[in-house]
């Protein structure tokens, strides 16, 4: 049989079918989990920037439950932000951030309280900045600076200043040595906030 001209074709076909079917089976088996993981990264980031307390080492399912319970969105009427409700009223907005960092895309959220001024927190769920340098933006020392800041009117709601500079109510310090990441992040945050503001205005969202 092995001398026949069709043998290699048959062989390749059988091999491909065999290996593919294992892979397809496995992918089907893990698909729900993969989807849950992807959704969970976003949900975690939303809850984190809204300063919602999560149990330590919360599993994806627990995060999902808290998220469903308290957050809805993205809501077009609120400028495409996720909305945190407390007692039926809007307590805070999670505004999506997305843009090019130093090496790759940075995605995250900035939380704004119901006064549309006070920052409740900032979080990131996707970034590939240099470890130990730009990647420090995901660490608490950098992120905690944002909590309680008030975003300014005009073109630059948030300013990232060099380390050591005097800070106004809408300014935070950059990560030492990560000038490129910091300038890009400032642009990403401000683009996100400006887009949110204009979407909010055009959606007639004065009711929040």
């Amino acid at each position: 049989m092995r001398d026949k001209p069709w043998y290699p074709v048959l062989y390749m076909f059988v091999m491909t079918a065999f290996f593919s079917s294992i892979l397809i089976g496995l992918a089907r088996f893990t698909r729900d989990r993969v989807e849950l993981n992807e959704r969970s990264a976003v949900e975690r980031a939303v809850l984190e920037c809204l300063a919602v307390e999560l149990p330590a080492r919360a599993s994806s399912l627990e995060v999902h439950r808290v998220f469903l319970d308290r957050v809805s969105g993205p809501v077009p009427a609120y400028g495409g932000a996720y909305v945190l409700r407390e007692g039926g009223k809007v307590a805070a907005y999670a505004v999506p951030l997305d843009g090019k960092g130093y090496w790759d895309r940075i995605k995250g959220f900035i939380g704004i309280a119901s006064d549309k001024r006070t920052v409740t927190g900032i979080s990131f769920y996707e970034q590939k900045e240099t470890p130990g340098l730009g990647a420090e933006i995901v660490q608490p020392p950098f992120r905690s600076q944002f909590t309680g800041k008030r975003i300014a009117d005009g073109r630059s709601p948030i300013g990232i200043m060099p380390v050591g500079a005097a800070l106004g109510p809408s300014k935070v310090h950059a990560v030492t040595g990560a000038t490129q990441t910091s300038t890009r992040l400032e642009k990403i945050i401000n683009d996100g906030l400006l887009r949110w503001r204009s979407d909010l205005a055009s959606a007639g969202g004065g009711q929040g």
Binding site: Y11, M12, M15, T16, F19, I22, L23, L26, A27, T30, R33, V34, N37, E38, S40, A41
Partner: peptide, 22 residues
């Protein structure tokens, strides 16, 4: 066939990481 076999194991690793170590 060799490429197919190597790709098979690599995809296994990829799927496993995606599902259990995102």
């Amino acid at each position: 066939v060799q490429t197919l076999i190597i790709a098979f194991y690599v995809i296994l690793v990829d799927i496993a990481l995606k599902a259990y170590w995102p």
